[in-house]
């Protein structure tokens, strides 16, 4: 529920503005004709964070800027650009924040190592416990 609450409240700043009167870009609400390209675009859009509502990906957002971002992603994918290149373009403009997929760099090494480290610690505790118990 609080997720909804939070998401609902995210919309509020938008409500400060009147609606833009321009018709949205067609590619913001229609798919690319090539299913493979559309799938690549969709996968990328799912991982780009909406800079307006902030709590959703641009694939799930009703904000106008999110629509324009979807359109630009579809155009660039259709033009043959690689999804990761588009992600890098977005990050170069809006920072790491805009990608839901944390880029692998020294700042995020601990994050990506977390699952392995956690399991290793768990194994150590469990193994120690079992062995200690067997010896006791």
């Amino acid at each position: 529920m609080r997720q909804l609450l939070a998401l609902a409240l995210l919309v509020v700043p938008v409500a400060l503005y009147a609606d833009p009167v321009m018709a949205p870009e067609p590619l913001s609400y229609t798919q690319l004709p090539d299913p493979a390209a559309e799938a690549r675009a969709q996968a990328l859009m799912q991982t780009i964070r909406c800079v307006v509502c902030q709590g959703q990906s641009i694939a799930d957002s009703d904000a106008d800027l999110a629509g324009d971002m979807r359109a630009i992603i579809r155009q660039r994918i259709a033009a043959g650009e690689k999804p990761e290149a588009i992600r890098a373009w977005m990050i170069a403009r809006y920072g790491r924040w805009v990608s839901y997929k944390p880029p692998l760099d020294p700042l995020t090494w601990p994050l990506w190592a977390a699952p392995v480290v956690l399991v290793a610690i768990g194994l150590l505790i469990a193994r120690g416990t079992l062995r200690r118990r067997r010896a006791a």
Binding site: D64, D68, I72, A92
Partner: peptide
Amino acid sequence: SSGVQMALGSSG
């Protein structure tokens, strides 16, 4: 279509 806005990293 907000192209320049995006190119400049502006969000509103």
